[in-house]
Amino acid sequence: MADKRAERIAELIAPLRVPPGTRVDLARDFDPRYKAHLKKRQGRELLRTGVELLAEYQARLAAQNTYGVLFCLQALDAGGKDGTIRHVMSGMNPQGVQVSSFKVPSVEELDHDYLWRYAHHLPARGDIAVFNRSHYEEVLVVRVHPDVLDRQRLPPETRGKKLWKRRFRQINDWERYLTENGITVVKLFLNLSKDEQRTRFLQRIDRPEKNWKFSAADVRERRFWDDYQRAFSRMLSETSTPWAPWYVIPADRKWFARICASAVLVHTLMELDPQYPTIGERAREDLLTARRELEEQTPEGTPDDPPPRSRTEG
């Protein structure tokens, strides 16, 4: 990663990474208003650079067709998941990106193990999959609301105090399995302050074009704020691993959250460093033969064909 851009990106996201094995306390360890001494004007340029780099590396990822990338987004309501996806993915080829939003499980999904429905949406090689909420709902919402766990109809012997520790281990093992089979796992938690969430809820109520985004259930869920903070802290502590670390994104400033999300994904792709496939001598000869045949078909009086464009020219 000799590229200077890569060094700047790595420096920006280093404070956001949760070191594996550390005990996290969200209120103590991560500030939702952190912005790395950047100004919003600088942020626009950085986001533009990130979007351009994502487009470049996505093309290489698809051409190499060896790795898939799973991009997991977790946040409380109004945390900015949808906006992050919209802005960060704006320059990417939609053919290679699949976004899955996980809501209340269906009857069919509840008839399977809790990871079953997520496994159906994993990326193919060369693709990027985005989980808007993810398998981590199973140690967040399910933990804060035990009645949800009842609907999963687990065998009685699997319930009890050890359930959550077992789920953390199972998720870590599953993610390790994915990475060992060529699916890189990127995990972002959009860390929103309680006061900023209140402000965003009020905006959704006061602005007619945002009314559809608000539900009375959002306010009811807000009553469990402290429970969620404890659940998120435990999740980050138990599941930030060397093969699938967590990044805590300061989410009170939307512009900075989008820069950070873009930087984490770019950093991940740069570390993978996918390459365009090269062709052998025989294949090269076939290309030259095809080119000569096409040149022979040039109508009389047509100007000479222009030289081939470089990749940077599109």
Rank of each mutant, 00 (worst) to 15 (best):
R291A: 14
T66R: 14
E137D: 12
V264C: 06
G50E: 11
A261I: 09
V264D: 03
D304G: 13
V24K: 02
L54I: 08
P242G: 02
V99F: 04
W164Q: 01
Q170I: 11
V130C: 10
A283I: 02
L269K: 09
K213D: 09
V185M: 04
T158R: 13
V107K: 13
I85D: 07
E238H: 10
A244I: 08
I205M: 12
T22I: 01
Y67K: 09
G160R: 05
D218C: 06
S240D: 08
S240W: 02
D77H: 03
R5W: 07
E52R: 13
A75S: 07
A257V: 08
R284P: 05
K4Y: 07
K81F: 02
A2V: 12
A6C: 05
K81H: 05
R292W: 04
T302V: 14
N132Y: 01
D82A: 01
N93Y: 00
K210E: 08
D305I: 06
R223M: 15
L265Y: 03
Q95W: 05
R220G: 12
E196S: 09
E52A: 15
A14E: 14
G80L: 04
T184M: 11
R284S: 13
V104I: 07
S237T: 15
P20G: 08
R282L: 15
L236E: 05
L202A: 14
E281G: 09
V186P: 09
A283F: 01
L76W: 04
L46Q: 13
H145N: 14
Q64N: 08
S106F: 02
P274G: 05
L110Y: 01
P308K: 01
F256A: 03
